Amino acid sequence: MIVRIMGEGQVRLDDTHVTELNKLDDELLAEMEHGDEAGFRRTLTALLEEVRRLGAPLPDDSLEPSELILPSPDASLEEVREMLSGDGLIPG
């Protein structure tokens, strides 16, 4: 799957990692629902770090369609809330 981190670029991520990323996504969703800004910031950072660690960066000139779009590391709680679907940032 191709994942875009807004403001950074794209990475190719094996579909097998979705389950472990969903755990962080669930934490992020719970922190957002409780208005836990510090927890939200910590978990968003952890989620993006995992995507970077597990994924392979695509060249900057690559124009692959992104299957998943994640917020930038400095996105606000409100900005991320607007991006959410019923399942969080990561479907599944």
Rank of each mutant, 00 (worst) to 15 (best):
G55M: 06
E8W: 10
L48S: 02
P59R: 12
P65K: 01
E31Q: 14
G7W: 02
H34I: 09
T45N: 11
P91V: 08
A30M: 11
S62E: 14
T16C: 13
A56Q: 14
V3N: 08
H17F: 11
E82L: 14
V11G: 09
R12F: 13
S66Q: 07
G88T: 07
E33D: 10
G35P: 01
R41W: 02
M6F: 04
I5Q: 01
H34P: 08
L63E: 10
V51G: 10
R12H: 13
R41M: 03
A75L: 04
D15P: 09
L58K: 03
L58W: 06
L24S: 03
E82S: 13
V80R: 00
P57S: 06
H34M: 13
E78P: 10
G7R: 07
I2W: 01
G92V: 04
R81P: 13
S85I: 09
L29A: 10
D60F: 12
S76Q: 06
D87G: 11
A56R: 15
A46D: 14
P59L: 10
G39T: 01
S66M: 02
P71C: 05
G86S: 13
I2E: 06
R42G: 05
L68P: 03
G39M: 03
E64I: 02
V51Q: 03
P71R: 00
L89P: 00
E8K: 11
L54Q: 11
P57A: 10
S76K: 04
E20Q: 13
I2C: 02
E50H: 14
G35H: 00
I5Y: 01
N22K: 15
P73Y: 02
D26A: 14
E67A: 12
G92L: 06
D87T: 14
M32L: 04
V51Y: 06
L63Y: 04
E33A: 07
M32I: 03
L77N: 08
T45V: 09
E27C: 12
A56W: 15
S62V: 10
E78S: 13
A38E: 11
P59E: 09
L58Y: 01
I5N: 04
R41Y: 09
P91G: 12
G92F: 02
L77C: 03
P73E: 07
E20K: 06
E64S: 04
M32H: 04
D87C: 11
V51W: 06
E82H: 14
I2S: 02
L84N: 12
A75K: 04
L84I: 00
E67L: 08
D60R: 14
H34K: 15
V80P: 04
G55C: 02
E20I: 06
G39E: 05
L70D: 02
E49K: 05
V11T: 02
G7Q: 07
L63I: 10
R53V: 05
G35L: 01
A46S: 14
L77I: 11
G7L: 04
D36P: 07
